[in-house]
Design a protein around this nucleic acid. Sequence first.
DNA 1: GCACTGTGTAACGATCATCT
DNA 2: AGATGATCGTTACACAGTGC
Length: 263
Amino acid sequence: MKASSIWSMAVHGKMFRICNVVGQYRNILLNRHTSSLYQQNAGLKKSVEEKLGLPPKPKKPLTPYFRFMAQIRPAIVQKNPQAKLTDIAKLAGTEWGKADSSVREQLQAEYKREMVDYMAAQVKYNQKLTDEQHEEIKKAKIEIAELKERRLLKKKKKELGKPKRPLSAFLLFMTEKKDERGTQSFKDWQIQMQNEWEKLYEEQKSAYMARSRKLFEEYKREIQIWEEKMIRLGHIDVVRNEALIQPKRQGTSVSQRSRGSEE
DNA sequence: GCACTGTGTAACGATCATCT
DNA sequence: AGATGATCGTTACACAGTGC
């Protein structure tokens, strides 16, 4: 903890130098960056290194455009109090397009100066880490990238209207009983549901199972139609592998398609 | 070509446990 | 992976420029 706070102080010091911008926005900039760093240290946005319990790595200097945005943001917000974050970014982009070349050059020069410090800090930081720590960071980054990929694929499936898997017999039972929960804790209620499910008469259970089976039959039909449509549209990544392997019952076959892109 | 850099917030995800 | 729900944590969104 102590080591990390020393690191944190070092980063603070660097950022204050980074924020040493001349002109009328100097104070605003200083305040903004101070609070921003405070939030990061409070753990709102942790870097991979910090998540792994390693000292925080030096932050990249702000690019000229980000520096510019930080300067004009207060004015934009004041003029457009109800503007959303995304609106502000758009307005800032417009302003950047209209900005004087001397302003751009000055911001560019500041960026270059701070980049020198950053590079040195980065080298120092990397030297401080062991080979194992470097490897750990590398692995974590790959994992994060894979997670992101999975999340995006899930989002795509949703957007393309992938049919949802139907409820199992037990879930149908649980859904039906949800209004009877009252003030019981979620966990206790689940355990109670499990007990009640086990005590159900076979014919009662069978009724739920029959309903679930029927839903699954419908689902099978829906998913097949949907996957065939996805293949036609070229969205092979959202289709289960079986759908690519199994030849279709009628019409054009997809079996000759290459499966190279899939696992 | 993608991650990073800043911002605030809405939306989304993981978690807990249960079964199929 | 589907539902249940509260809670806490994380990410996408917009913008442009830079470096790996």
